[in-house]
Structure formats: C-alpha cells, structure tokens
C-alpha cells in the first residue's frame, strides 16, 4: 500500500511519467494531486489500482464455482455473452460479490495512508477524508475526543451503507 502510494505519487507528479505518456499522445499535462478539482479523481485512480487486482481474486474464486452446465443451458436457450453475464454469472456470484462489495466499501472508507503520504488532506482540504482526519486528529494533533466523535460518525455511516448492501444482495431463502 505505502509502496504503491509512493510510486503513484511520483508517477502522477506534474512532471512525472503519466503526464509524459499524455504528452506522447499530444494531450496537455494534468495537475492530478495538486489540483483541488482532480485530487479526488487521482485518489480514486490510486485506490482502484491498489484494489482491482486484489478484489478480483475473490471474484475469480467465485467464478470458478459457477458450474459450466449453467452456461451451456443458457447458450442452448440462445443467450449471448452479455445476457449470460447478467442472467448466469451475476446471480451465481452473489455471495462473493456481497463480500467484495462490503469489504471494498469498508476498506476504502478507512483508507488514509495515501492521503497522509501524498496530499495531507489538501489542496484546499479537498482530500481531507473522514478517516484521514480521524488519524490526523488523534495521532498528530493529540485531539482524541474530536477523533472519537468523528469515528462514531464514520461507524454509523458505514453500518448504514453495509446494511443496504446486505439487503440488496440477499438471497431468496433469507441467507446472505
């Protein structure tokens, strides 16, 4: 995580290699982490890069558990690849999908290392995410009480979202 962050921080520097690649295609250099308008986008790119390969593993594990006969049946019924994806893959993947949805949501809610290493909440406080502020208040500014209040808010928010996710992907027999 810290390693990926340092690498991406250097890569997305205004004079860094990513802008170098943009330049090869004749595109203008972007400010990335240094712009209040792009910092959130840049964080999303970074967090996605860290997350995609990781969470994909669990979905691949789930995909392997889908019996091939279902696909054969769907094909015999004339379903194309997209139809198969939505009618066979997604329903059969529901349990791993619930895990990935919940775990990925939570892990990004509590993500703060890239913010701490790269932007310190800036520019103009645009990347001052809740978990970063909690960490900052309790570890750097010694304000444990304010940090506790913020942590409570974060917890309630996450519980609400996770509850919705559980409901969304609930199976018919009531088992998640």
């Amino acid at each position: 995580m810290a390693g990926s962050t340092i690498v991406w921080g250097l890569a997305l520097r205004p004079d860094g290699p990513v802008n170098g690649v943009l330049d090869l295609f004749g595109l203008p250099a972007q400010p990335w982490f240094t712009s209040p308008h792009q910092v959130v986008l840049s964080m999303i790119i970074l967090a996605s890069w860290i997350g995609i390969g990781y969470w994909m593993m669990f979905l691949i594990a789930g995909l392997n558990d889908v019996p091939p006969v279902y696909y054969e049946a769907a094909r015999l019924d004339g379903a194309g690849p997209i139809r198969q994806f939505f009618s066979v893959t997604i329903p059969m993947l529901r349990r791993p999908l619930l895990f990935v949805l919940v775990a990925d949501t939570v892990s990004n809610f509590v993500l703060f290392a890239p913010v701490q290493i790269l932007t310190d909440g800036g520019p103009n406080g645009k990347s001052d995410f809740l978990m970063f502020d909690i960490f900052h208040q309790s570890y750097e500014l010694s304000n444990p009480y304010q940090a506790s209040v913020e942590l409570l808010f974060l917890l309630v928010l996450m519980i609400a979202i996770v509850a919705v996710q559980f409901r969304l992907l609930r199976t018919d027999d009531g088992e998640e």
């Binding site: 400010p31 240094t34 712009s35 209040p36 932007t119 310190d120 909440g121 800036g122 520019p123 103009n124 406080g125 900052h136 750097e140 500014l141 010694s142």
Partner: peptide
Amino acid sequence: YVEFEDTMTKAFDDIINGT
C-alpha cells in the same frame, strides 16, 4: 507549535497549488 506547523504546512501546500 505542533498545530501551528501542521496548519502552516497545509496553507503552504495550498499556496503552492494555486490558492
């Protein structure tokens, strides 16, 4: 001082980035 340095670093970062 801890709060001061922290606040000023943020302000300097914002100034660097165009505020």
